[in-house]
Design a protein around this nucleic acid. Structure first.
Lengths: 248, 248
DNA sequence: ATAAAACTTGCATATAACTGCACTACTATG
DNA sequence: CATAGTAGTGCAGTTATATGCAAGTTTTAT
């Protein structure tokens, strides 16, 4: 096999599988690992792939991150739009923190007149920009990692409320294992919020669906509405639809 | 699994779930915790995430540090610097809102370890960026105009506190007419803050000195320290010095 | 205050990469 | 045609990297 052929083969494979190992190639093509290494080095110098210790990665691998985070941004905007359609004038709305919730806060219609109750500093910051929204801030210790207030005081305040609707940005949702999270204190707050609301709406990008985290918040059935960036009839959501969740 | 792949996986997960644990990752990827730690360290050095004890946090949430410190040393920055010199490790600090207070929040030394109590959303937002500061948020109705929480609930919470020092950003200060403001609700909060602190420190640009507003907060004598952008021996401040205020 | 968990450091090992060299096959040129 | 030149490949020895393990320290939680 000629050098050019070999390199074409390598390139084809790295783009196909996103990654390859020096050892595998050496075996497949029946040349020494040194030769493969030299090939990879050349291809890498030509910018055709990314060489790493032990093998190589396809060029799109690295870019895929940026692309996906922009994609996630778009998704969140989409979710935000759907979510804000559920809020009617005069409602009492409980919201958690999280990037998705903040996106929703940004996407709220300007003329919306409602009362928002939250323990999230960045969310409150966004609500402040809306002239017709009344904001009730929940006080207590502010958690650095989640940027919402947590603790007994916060929970007891939440329990004094009867809200119409509660929007939760979430971490992991699984058909069988329900809603889970990884921060004990945040879990307590979310539980309290759900209890204090007529209706619970989850906002999440589809990637988080059918993942699991350490601490359980509630069963899937305890949720009323699920909002993702997907179409309501996407098959990924079928299992949720089956057990009675409303999908938007 | 190649190192780069692993790190990409980690990064993806931390951005998805906001927070990850070393142990979980180690289990999921089937490498030792040491390796995960090394990966997290590298990613953290590249600024891709924030490493914390036990795991890592997503950067997208934790708004990174603001580098705009040394330049633009305008009046408020000067005041901020003077003010932060009064705060010692371990103190309980009550702060109001207002632009001067927010400037102070930005100017706090990075290694300062103290507890800050505030009802101001933008101030809390700044405190969140400081790794060693504990924040207690005062809950209640959020006032649009002042961006701090106001109301009976807020005041009763403030009264439960005994702080070492209280920083107030102010609206008007006059030798004879004392400290005045134009928002009734904010005045109540400030009064409560002063009562709950050992020491009251006012932050203001000199323009506001010897101006008067509608509602009275307290007498000039009730104030302990006055901080302006002026030199402590500036003649504009003489009358305050005479009645016993400490000028910085 | 104490125990558990997480971290640091140094070290050992395995694998990967690099270097220089020898061998081969093909090319170019008088 | 002979032969010097050149590119490609593999090999041996050396160096670098990645990872796990163990001992000791720090941090966190109870």
């Amino acid at each position: 096999m000629l050098k050019k052929e070999r390199q074409a083969f390598i390139l084809h494979n790295v783009n196909l599988h996103n990654r390859i190992l020096v050892g595998d190639l050496s075996e497949e093509i029946s040349v020494s690992e040194d030769t493969i290494r030299r090939d990879l080095q050349e291809l890498s110098e030509d910018g055709k792939l990314i060489k790493v210790h032990g093998g190589a990665l396809s060029k799109s691998f690295h870019n895929s991150f940026n692309a996906s985070s922009i994609y996630a941004m778009d998704s969140k905007k989409m979710i935000a739009k759907k979510a804000s359609s559920l809020i009617k004038d005069g409602m009492f709305v409980l919201t958690s923190g999280g990037t998705t919730i903040i996106e929703m806060a940004k996407a709220l219609p300007e003329n919306l007149q409602a009362t928002f109750i939250t323990g999230s500093v960045p969310a409150a910051f966004e609500y402040l920009k809306h002239p017709n929204i009344e904001i009730i801030l929940i006080g207590d210790k502010l958690s650095k990692s989640s940027q919402i207030t947590v603790g007994g005081e916060a929970i007891s305040k939440i329990k004094q409320i009867r809200a119409d609707i509660c929007f939760l940005g979430i971490n992991a949702l699984h058909v069988k294992h329900g809603l889970t999270d990884n921060d004990w204190e945040v879990v307590q707050v979310k539980k309290a919020m759900m209890e204090s609301s007529e209706k619970t709406v989850l906002l999440t990008i589809s990637e988080k669906i059918n993942t699991i985290q350490r601490i359980r918040i509630c069963d899937t059935k305890a949720i009323d509405v699920l909002i993702t960036e997907l179409n309501a009839d996407d098959e990924q959501l079928d299992s949720f639809k089956k057990i009675g969740l409303k999908i938007i």
